[in-house]
């Protein structure tokens, strides 16, 4: 939950709350929901400047918990998907480049939005921008996985509704064109990105 850590770092840096006022392990625990919201309320109460930012972050957390509460993942199915993903990863780069994929249709259920970008702060206020994240539930009792949909990850927004099978080559051509890169320059980065998406997030499903 990088956004949660970034939020707290921002709150400390902007003096909206003191470090010794927050039990950080509790704040970062997905199971301490009430404690986390309590800290948000305290920050809002203590600082009018923080209000808009806290409300936005609270909205993000509301969406995180909604996705977590509504998840219907069966462990056996998830583990089977991981198995397919592991097999994909054992292929050579050349074999991966010959692969085809489908966008996971569940991806659209996992997209959330905020008015500030909670992944680009560095001791100042978060950028005001329509920020998108993928909050992806897991089959184990831990926090959902989180992807900030900027830079290369933003391509997930572009393809989220695509329901046809596509090849790696087609994806590379699409992304290179959109980012104005030569395919050769982008290939290594895209291949690593696709592999990570297949294995950790299952946003992209390899066709076997």
């Amino acid at each position: 939950m990088k956004t949660r850590k970034n939020f707290l770092d921002w709150a400390f840096a902007q003096n909206h709350i003191l470090e010794n006022e927050v039990d950080q392990p509790r704040f970062y625990s997905i199971h301490e929901q009430n404690y986390m919201y309590g800290i948000l309320a305290r920050i809002t109460k203590g600082s009018l400047d923080a209000k808009a930012f806290v409300e936005d972050f609270k909205g993000l957390e509301n969406q995180r918990y909604r996705i977590m509460d509504e998840r219907t993942i069966k462990e056996i199915d998830a583990v089977s998907q991981v198995g397919i993903a592991i097999d994909f990863c054992t292929q050579s780069d050349a074999q991966k480049r010959e692969s085809s994929f489908l966008v996971n249709p569940d991806l659209t259920n996992y997209l959330v939005q905020s008015a500030f970008l909670w992944n680009d702060i560095e001791n100042k206020n978060p950028k005001t921008i329509d920020a998108y994240y993928a909050i992806i539930p897991t089959f184990i009792d831990v926090a959902p996985k989180e992807i900030c949909l900027t830079q290369l990850s933003a391509l997930l927004l572009d393809i989220k509704d695509y329901r046809e099978v596509f090849t790696y080559a087609e994806l590379l051509e699409l992304v290179a064109g959109a980012m104005d890169y030569e395919e050769k320059e982008l290939d290594r980065q895209l291949l690593d990105f696709v592999t990570a998406q297949v294995l950790y997030y299952r946003t992209l499903l390899p066709i076997t």
């Binding site: 970062y28 583990v79 991981v82 089959f139 184990i140 294995l199 997030y201």
Partner: peptide, 16 residues
């Protein structure tokens, strides 16, 4: 040790 992506990998791989 608390990163969901990696914890999932451990559990799934052990089970598989």
């Amino acid at each position: 040790k608390k990163t969901s992506e990696y914890l999932e990998q451990i559990v799934a791989r052990l089970r598989l």
